[in-house]
């Protein structure tokens, strides 16, 4: 069980009265705009939810786990998610099974 784009579009259709095509396009566009801002080197800050933060990592030594051979892990830019205070508090209250 997982929330998907289809579920999200369905809720927009039911809650906001967008037609099904508009709802689907909006969900696509939402994720595409976040992805493209991150791809254009913008952090993305969504208050109440969290921040997608870009980090530049320098090259560091690594190892091929199969052969044990040393190979450098090249410098790269990665995205991390830092949940906002509000989301953290809501999730903390979840008492479900330990994963």
């Amino acid at each position: 069980m997982a929330l998907t784009k289809a579920d999200m579009a369905e809720s927009l259709y039911e809650e906001l009265g967008l037609n099904k095509r508009e709802a689907k396009e909006l969900v696509e566009l939402f994720f595409e705009e976040v992805r493209s801002a991150l791809g254009d080197a913008y952090h993305v800050k969504l208050s109440g939810f969290g921040n997608f933060v870009l980090r530049d990592k320098t090259e560091r030594p690594g190892r091929n786990p199969k052969t044990g051979e040393e190979i450098p892990i090249s410098a790269r830019r990665v995205v991390t998610f830092r949940p906002g205070q509000k989301l953290k508090q809501r999730v903390e209250a979840y008492a479900g099974s330990q994963q």
Partner: peptide, 13 residues
Amino acid sequence: QMSNALSSGERIE
């Protein structure tokens, strides 16, 4: 919707 899913233990994919 995303916050709700996570706070009820549901994944988002």
